[in-house]
């Protein structure tokens, strides 16, 4: 696209999980399907994309973070990127809040916000696909979307149009409980304790007897899916991303 002198309406920042994690790759493909479905001209950086530096920064490695950030900014500016949609709240937070101070200024949204906008503009509905009518769905707020950036309503909007039975956990929105993966915990074993955080969280979700536990973060996806597997409930309870639910509801 760049070779033809064109620039995309929006850059889809896939993220490391979305690129490499098998479960998250499915979500990546569904985000692409949604973009194609509504006819947005988008691009991905492909092999030129590199980690935003989020896990390095949360773990205290500011050097590594800034090295990643500055070289990513060079790539993004090289393609004259103005607007970015991310498939991950951690990439979203880092690109949106921490890149401007290092010279990277872009309009950054998370895919749940894109879905919300498309719904508001009437470009995206829930028709032509799987019916979620009457299904019990509970949404788990990713910390870096919710508390970190005050995005609580966008992912819920995508669920509201489904005519499903939406239930909230007691710890939701700004009181939401972390899945246990943030702050680079995803990449290490937890410290000694009496329980794993993802089990604490899935216990709360399962107590509502949901058909679907929804989230919008690839790390939450891993933690919550592991939690469901821990109770051998994969058949009864599905852990799905907002993008997957939207794609399914539209038969994409």
């Amino acid at each position: 696209m760049a070779a033809k002198g064109e620039s995309p309406e929006i850059l889809f920042w896939v993220g490391c999980a979305g690129s490499f994690d098998e479960r998250a790759q499915k979500i990546t493909r569904d985000i692409c399907k949604i973009l194609q479905h509504v006819g947005i001209k988008y691009a991905v950086l492909g092999t030129e994309e590199s980690c935003t530096g989020d896990p390095a920064k949360r773990a205290g490695n500011e050097f590594l973070f800034q090295m990643q950030a500055m070289s990513n900014i060079q790539v993004l500016d090289g393609y004259n990127i103005k607007k970015i949609v991310t498939g991950c709240p951690h990439c979203f937070n880092t690109l949106r809040n921490e890149y401007p101070g290092l010279g990277g200024n872009y309009e950054v949204i998370h895919h749940s916000q894109l879905i919300q906008q498309l719904i508001d503009e009437g470009k995206l509905k829930a028709e032509g696909g799987e019916s979620f009518k009457g299904k019990k769905i509970t949404f788990h707020d990713p910390c870096y979307l919710g508390r970190a950036n005050n995005v609580y309503e966008a992912p819920r909007k995508a669920l509201e149009i489904l005519d499903a039975d939406l239930v909230e956990m007691k710890r939701c929105k700004s009181n939401g409980l972390c899945c246990g993966a943030g702050g680079a915990q995803m990449f290490k074993e937890p410290e000694k304790g009496k329980k794993d955080i993802n089990i604490e969280r899935i216990d709360e979700a399962l107590a509502l007897n949901p058909n679907i536990v929804a989230s919008s973060c690839p790390f939450c996806m891993t933690m919550l899916s592991d939690g469901v597997k821990n109770y051998n409930k994969e058949q009864e309870v599905k852990v799905l991303d907002i993008a997957e639910i939207t794609a399914r509801a539209n038969g994409l």
């Binding site: 690129s19 490499f20 493909r29 092999t47 994309e49 530096g53 773990a59 680079a184 990449f187």
Partner: peptide, 27 residues
């Protein structure tokens, strides 16, 4: 394991041990 993650970000541009050339395999 945190040091290993740092090493991966530094060398492969991802927190896991995957090669950058495989980044678009999801497609």
């Amino acid at each position: 394991s945190i040091n290993a993650m740092f090493g991966n970000v530094e060398n492969n541009g991802a927190p896991w041990k995957y090669a950058a050339v495989d980044r678009v395999n999801w497609a």
